[in-house]
Design a protein around this nucleic acid. Structure first.
Lengths: 111, 111
DNA sequence: TATGCATAACTAGCTTAACTAACGGTTCGA
DNA sequence: TCGAACCGTTAGTTAAGCTAGTTATGCATA
């Protein structure tokens, strides 16, 4: 119930992925996980069982594009990049996120 | 997908209710709705179909206590108040919320 | 040579919160 | 007396994220 520790709130995951790809074009899934974890300084952790389904959904939606390639460790990996639609979506999600957090902040601040 | 407009993110609702009851002891459901909407300055809107089930769950969890009474408009209404467990839960949820938003903020800020 | 670890991707099945879209009843003012 | 605001309830749906696996390969090292 409520906010569970180590739970990424519904909706947040997509935002994090889009933003990661806006910052680093062409990341593979595994790299997205570590990027989010590193940049958030361990506050956030993306589970693989959440990540890959999300990436597939986002590809369906046309927000990301995928192609196979080699990592610098010489492994096969699917690299994702943002599409124009993805960039637009990122803007929307960022705005929604700002509105939500501002709303919650007001309720919390209100003495 | 992602953050839908007018969706209260999963987990946020409980936090909002707990906080509303911490600020205003003894609110009825309808009043919680209007309180959140007013205090958030219309950024947030709590749907009744979400609110009442949430209140029932929270009562089951022992976070709130309910009793029937009369409103100042002379209507029957179920008044909710925080329990000790509810206050403790509020502290947890507020901390989780802070951790999540800080994590997301770092990912977003990261250039 | 084998053995193990880190890397990389994927999925079935479950849980659960929040929503939609109703419905029922009451009080009060126009 | 009629409608609007007030107050509560619920069945059924959706969908996102999690758990707990599986598969596979490159590389280091014992």
């Amino acid at each position: 119930m409520g906010i569970r520790k180590n739970d990424i709130l519904q909706g947040t995951l997509v935002l994090l992925i889009l933003k990661s790809l806006a910052t680093n074009p062409r990341l593979h899934g595994y790299a997205i996980t570590s990027h989010v974890q590193r940049v958030s300084e361990n506050l956030l952790r993306v589970e693989e069982g959440s990540l890959y389904p999300a990436l597939h959904r986002m590809e369906q939606e046309g927000w990301v594009r995928a192609d196979w390639g080699k990592t610098e460790k010489n492994r096969d990996a699917r690299f994702y990049s943002l599409t124009a639609a993805g960039r637009k979506q990122l803007a929307h999600e960022q705005e929604s996120w700002a509105r939500l957090t501002e709303g919650v902040a007001r309720v919390i601040r209100y003495a």
